[in-house]
Design a protein around this nucleic acid. Structure first.
Length: 347
RNA sequence: GGCGCCGUCGCCAAGUGGUAAGGCAGAGGUCUGCAAAACCUCCACCCCCGGUUCAAAUCCGGGCGGCGCCU
């Protein structure tokens, strides 16, 4: 920042703190600690914890453990609904506004990088899913393969076709869907992308642990989840009429556990598989966050006093910078500035 | 000391004369309304030396290492 205070610092949007990181790193505990310290409210940023009844497998924080801190976007969707990134972006933006209006600090907590990006950088304001069209395109894919859709896409939207793998049916279908309902190629919509909280000042903190530490924690957590009745939770959901192909059953932990209940493999193998999938997932998450601009890294588990102290210091620094009118221009996420990411190292 | 079996990527493992499957682990990447999802890419001169052969991880000999049995 140079000495001349730019005019745009006059109207800074809300400060949003985000506690991100791989699975089982202690995000929940850290977010809670920050909320207690700064008078915050927590907004879930986990794609599966939004579903009602999916508690144990998502490691959702229980009511008793919330210590009076309001939590948003947990249990907001029915298991048979399809919650989406777009809906998350709208819901989370609304929550940010409401919390900020109350004079509280909005704290995002979760590991779904795509949802974080959808909120902070936005999605193009195009059409949502068109069920019939998708079904039809998927049928075509089943019959003639991804290459067929890919060729189709290339004719109407070469730019998207170049970006999407011929086997990536999901993205091919979406690109074609957007073209067919709007008459414009997907890539042409990108220019209209805006974040619903483009004015916000986002302080993104990533809790980072070595892969081996994550592996240990994951293994322990899987055992705990089984001990706490993961399988009973699934049986209850099934008993309540949630079909085995419901969206949240397709994700980590639940997918493998459901398969186990269907007799695909025994419990020991299932536990091992879940742990393995968690490790993979953690890796994908870190790959994602590494490329997300403007994040700061916290070394150490989220529940540790040292990590908490680091996080508190960073939030305080940001708060005092804002009080001084020094909100950095462009602190919103409309323009990624990867070079500005500040690595924090401490032992 | 003798006999037998074995030695292929960090781990498991296929291949038994034609130029190294696969899985796990590891690494990198894509991602704009399914993202805890989906998709892509990379990762071995086959223990060593010599021989046979147009060609050897594959056959032969000798080392070295491991395992088992015997005396």
């Amino acid at each position: 920042m140079n000495g001349e205070s730019p005019a745009r610092s006059a109207a800074p949007g809300p400060l949003v703190v985000a506690v991100l990181g791989a699975t089982a790193t202690g995000k929940t505990a850290l977010a809670l600690a920050l909320a207690e310290h700064f008078g915050g409210e927590i907004i879930n940023c986990d794609s599966t914890a939004v579903y009602r009844g999916f508690d144990i497998g998502t490691d959702k924080i229980g009511l008793a453990d919330r210590r009076g801190i309001p939590h948003h976007l947990l249990d907001v969707a029915d298991p048979t609904e399809d919650y989406t990134a777009a809906r998350f972006a709208r819901d989370a933006a609304a929550a940010v506004r409401a919390i900020d209006a109350r004079g509280h600090l909005p704290i995002l907590a979760g590991g779904t990088g795509f949802y974080f990006r959808a909120l902070t950088r936005g999605l193009f304001p195009g059409p949502g899913r068109h069920a019939e069209l998708r079904a039809r395109l998927e049928r075509v894919a089943d019959r003639r393969g991804g290459w067929f859709l890919h060729r189709m896409l290339r004719r109407v939207d070469a730019a998207s076709a170049a970006r999407i793998q011929p086997r990536d049916i999901k993205r091919l279908v979406r690109a074609l869907e957007v073209f067919f309902v709007t008459g414009r190629p997907l890539t042409a919509h990108f220019a209209d992308t805006t974040s619903l909280i483009a004015d916000a000042d986002v302080l993104g903190l990533v809790v980072r642990l070595p892969a081996e530490a994550i592996a240990d924690r994951v293994a322990r957590r899987v055992d705990e989840q089984f001990a706490r009745g993961l399988l009973d939770e699934i049986r209850a959901l099934r008993g309540a009429g949630v079909p085995p192909d419901a969206r949240p059953f397709g994700g980590l932990v639940y997918r493998q556990a459901v398969e186990h209940l269907q007799g695909v493999r025994d419990e020991a193998a299932t536990r091992a598989l879940i742990a393995q999938e968690n490790r993979r997932y953690a890796r994908r998450q870190m790959l994602w966050f590494r490329k997300e601009p403007n994040l700061m890294w916290l070394e150490g588990p989220g529940e540790s006093a040292a990590t908490r102290a680091d996080a508190i210091r960073l939030v305080e620094a940001r708060l005092s910078a804002r009080r001084a009118g020094g909100t950095p221009a462009g602190a919103g996420y409309d323009e990624p500035r990867a070079a500005d990411a500040v690595p924090i190292t401490n032992v």
